[in-house]
Computed example of a mutant assay.
Amino acid sequence: MLIALSKSWFYDHTPAAASENLQNFSVIVPSKGQDYPPVLAYWICGTSGDGKRMLRLLKAIYHPRNQYLLQLDAESSDYERAELVVSVQSESLFRAFGNVNVVGKGYAINEMGSSALAAILNAAALLLKLSADWDWFINLSVSDYPLVSQDDLLHAFTSLPRDLNFINYTGGDAEKNEIDKINQIVVDPSLHLQKSSHLYYAVETRATPDAFKIFGGSPWLILTRAFMEYCVQGMGQPSKKITNVLQQHSIPT
């Protein structure tokens, strides 16, 4: 039987989009400590038609120690989400360790807009509620596939300090075309609509910020639990504040 967690299950500071129905399976607490490997929290996001690819990726990166949150965006139907839940529940290994969860309702995401950042923050908020024992947050899409086994990855991370964040950036100041994108005034309707929408670009531009340096890089991240807690909880509703600041920017790629 599928259990839907209501909004009352979440604290007031949880982002609204993150407090929608969540199809949940009981969570067990892995052994933790200096002599144990870390716990990785994966968020895998996809769109309509991605259910089978999402399951393929899940099985490829599955490990009993880790936590997994699967989400199909608003372009997917309720039937697709229900089918994904049934597929997860039908795997005896997932049921035995209870560490795979499926978000029961999708919301609009534009990969080039601030709605993509909002989706990451919402996923982190859910994972923080689901488990108090993971060490790093990793976001993946259904087009990703592992190059190493989870045993090897966990072994490599075991000897690392748990306060390291991994961000892939270009290694220098942002290129001119990235600066041009940053100077654009952009509206991401997907932050407010039920279905994903194209970005709207204003004719006017703004001056390049000079209070900090801007770097280009990859949207794929490995971030510590402490950092994600700060982003989600540390300033009241920072996820809303961050997306409000960035909602007039496109994400350079």
Rank of each mutant, 00 (worst) to 15 (best):
S114Q: 04
G98M: 07
T208Q: 13
A108D: 07
E111D: 15
S196K: 09
V86H: 13
S196I: 03
R206S: 13
Q184G: 13
A108P: 04
L140P: 02
N177V: 13
T158Y: 07
A202H: 08
R95L: 09
L121A: 05
S143T: 13
H155L: 14
V142C: 01
D188R: 01
G171T: 00
D151V: 11
S87I: 14
L84F: 06
D163G: 03
K181C: 03
L153A: 05
V102C: 07
L160K: 01
E111H: 15
L147M: 10
N177W: 12
V142G: 00
D188T: 01
V187E: 09
L147R: 10
L127T: 03
Y201D: 08
Q150C: 08
V203W: 13
L199R: 08
N99F: 02
W134A: 00
F166A: 08
K105M: 13
V203P: 10
Q150R: 08
I185A: 07
L127V: 05
Q194S: 10
S90E: 12
N101E: 12
S131Y: 10
V186A: 04
S90I: 06
S197R: 10
V100K: 00
Y145W: 12
S143M: 12
D133M: 00
L117C: 12
H192D: 15
D163Q: 03
A119Q: 05
E204H: 14
S92R: 06
I138E: 03
F94Y: 03
K181G: 04
V102W: 04
G171N: 01
L128F: 06
S190A: 08
S159K: 07
Q194V: 15
N168H: 08
V88P: 12
D152Y: 11
T208D: 13
D151L: 11
E91K: 10
F137I: 07
I109Y: 08
L93Y: 11
V148C: 07
L126W: 04
D180G: 02
G113Q: 02
P189N: 04
P189F: 02
P146S: 15
V142I: 12
V85T: 12
D152C: 09
Y145K: 13
G106P: 04
P189G: 01
E178R: 01
L147Y: 13
A118Y: 05
V85H: 14
D210Q: 15
K181R: 02
L93P: 15
G104F: 07
K129Y: 15
E204R: 15
D135E: 01
M112I: 14
A174C: 06
M112T: 15
D135M: 00
W134K: 00
D173G: 03
G113P: 10
N139Q: 09
A118Q: 12
L154P: 00
L121I: 02
T205I: 14
Y200H: 10
F137Q: 05
P209V: 06
L153M: 06
D188A: 02
L127P: 06
K105W: 11
